[in-house]
């Protein structure tokens, strides 16, 4: 499969990344090379095999829905790039 310029821009957009001109060509080459290698999975003897999503048995883990307080609010907020009155500050979302 050939990766096109449009495709890489589409993927970058989905991933919320802005690529510089020189990055676009580089990532097309990289992605192409990695995908060529990854195509080997098509030769694996996997007919009829189920998929595996995790290393151990997949089962639901239930717990009581209890409120637990986390009291280090200052510790959380000190990492905020912008804050106001104990809230994370962001630009206006609705016009």
């Amino acid at each position: 499969m050939q990766v096109s310029r449009e495709e890489i821009l589409h993927i970058a957009n989905l991933a919320q990344l802005e690529l510089k001109e020189e990055e676009i060509d580089k990532y097309i080459t990289n992605l192409q090379e990695i995908l060529n290698f990854a195509n080997i999975v098509n030769n694996a003897p996997i007919d009829g095999l189920d998929i595996t999503i995790g290393a151990n048995e997949a089962k639901n883990i239930f717990r009581k829905d209890e409120v637990k307080t986390f009291d280090n609010i200052e510790g959380l907020l000190q990492n905020a790039p912008a804050q106001d009155k104990h809230m994370f500050k962001i630009p206006k979302v609705l016009e």
């Binding site: 499969m1 990766v3 495709e7 890489i8 993927i11 970058a12 989905l14 991933a15 990344l17 990532y27 992605l31 990695i34 995908l35 990854a38 999975v41 098509n42 694996a44 003897p45 996997i46 095999l49 189920d50 998929i51 595996t52 999503i53």
Partner: peptide
């Protein structure tokens, strides 16, 4: 991130991600 987004994106999910999960079983 680009590779991961690519293999999960519509059209390539079955060709790469699903196959990889089957290889994981293998």
């Amino acid at each position: 991130i680009i590779l991961g987004t690519y293999v999960l994106s519509s059209g390539y999910y079955d060709a790469y991600y699903k196959k990889a999960q089957q290889v994981r079983t293998l």
